[in-house]
């Protein structure tokens, strides 16, 4: 049995590191294994370096780094399954919560807000980020990894926007408009042009792109179907009128010395102002 010298040991370890094996445990395992092979199998008077080069291909098919990749794959395999299960559960739960919340909202029953919030939060903050991680892992092509992950990120922003809008929270419109705009004008073209050249997925890519463009376009168009400018202006002037009349009434009430007659006149004026306001509202509705 031949003994390995310290220099030879350092040479093997450096070569293992240079070949892309970075897990220390794996480095030590391989070092010991290679040393054992050399110690037990090297023919008498055989050159160490020559024999080392000869036995190294036993450890891989193409390159030594395969061991590192395979180890990492096996180590994350357990998490991968847990992530897929979480994805399934959060997907189903968020869909159920959203449908239930929307039904309660339509029927004006209590609890709608909580269900919609939970559904939206689960979907946009758990389901979609998990989808990004899994797509990154599953997709083979780098371009697909990035494009699909970008899509899910845009979907996250849009759904958070929708959630904010339903809950009447601030920044809802900014999130929704930026999300939908990015989806229609950036993501769909990117998705189409990165996949359409591949013969095997060309048909599906075209169909998906058309569907996404149609849905995104429809949602985008809906942003313009809000209140008209005229109605908004009139509502604004009505609010101002209401504020000024309330202020006036407060002032009147604060005068202690004012005569009852005058006070009655002011009450009458208040009544007239109110009727005037109702009249304006009726006109607007017509």
């Amino acid at each position: 049995m031949r003994n390995i010298s310290d220099d030879e040991l350092d040479f093997i370890l450096n070569d293992i590191k240079a070949n892309g094996v970075v897990i220390e445990d794996l480095q030590n395992n391989l070092l010991d294994h290679i040393c054992c092979v050399i110690e037990n199998e090297i023919p008498l008077n055989e050159d160490f370096y020559k024999f080392y080069k000869q036995i190294l291909p036993r450890f891989f098919k193409k390159e030594l780094k395969e061991l590192q990749v395979e180890t990492e794959k096996l180590l994350t395999f357990k998490n991968y399954y847990a992530m897929r299960n979480t994805l399934k559960i959060t997907g189903i739960v968020s869909a159920l919560f959203t449908i239930l919340g929307a039904s309660l909202k339509v029927l004006h029953y209590p609890g709608a807000g909580i269900f919609i919030q939970l559904g939206g939060i689960l979907f946009s903050l758990v389901f979609l980020p998990l989808m990004i991680v899994l797509k990154f892992k599953d997709e083979e092509k780098k371009v697909d990894k990035f494009v699909l992950s970008l899509g899910f990120l845009i979907a996250m922003i849009s759904f958070i926007g929708v959630l904010f809008k339903l809950m009447h929270w601030p920044w809802a419109s900014v999130l929704m408009i930026s999300g939908i705009s990015a989806f229609v004008f950036a993501y769909v073209p990117l998705y189409y042009f990165t996949r359409v050249r591949r013969e095997e997925i060309r048909f599906n890519t075209t169909i998906n792109s058309v569907l996404m463009m149609a849905c995104g376009g429809l949602i985008f168009a809906m942003f313009n179907l809000g209140y008209g400018q005229k109605i908004t202006n009139e509502e604004h002037s009505l609010t101002k009128l209401k504020e000024s009349s309330e202020h006036l009434i407060d002032e009147i009430n604060s005068f202690d010395t004012i005569s009852t007659v005058n006070k009655n006149q002011f009450v009458k004026l208040k009544q007239e102002l109110y009727e005037f306001k109702v009249e304006i509202q009726k006109t607007n509705k017509k």
């Binding site: 310290d6 395992n29 294994h33 096996l74």
Partner: peptide, 26 residues
């Protein structure tokens, strides 16, 4: 080795390290 590492991580194997000269044997 990938399988040994996976089994160790799953708690199905335990390890002990021993020095054989300068190198570590697991």
């Amino acid at each position: 080795y990938p399988t040994l590492h996976a089994l160790e991580k799953n708690g199905e194997l335990a390890t002990e390290e021993e020095y054989i000269g300068k190198r570590v044997r697991k």
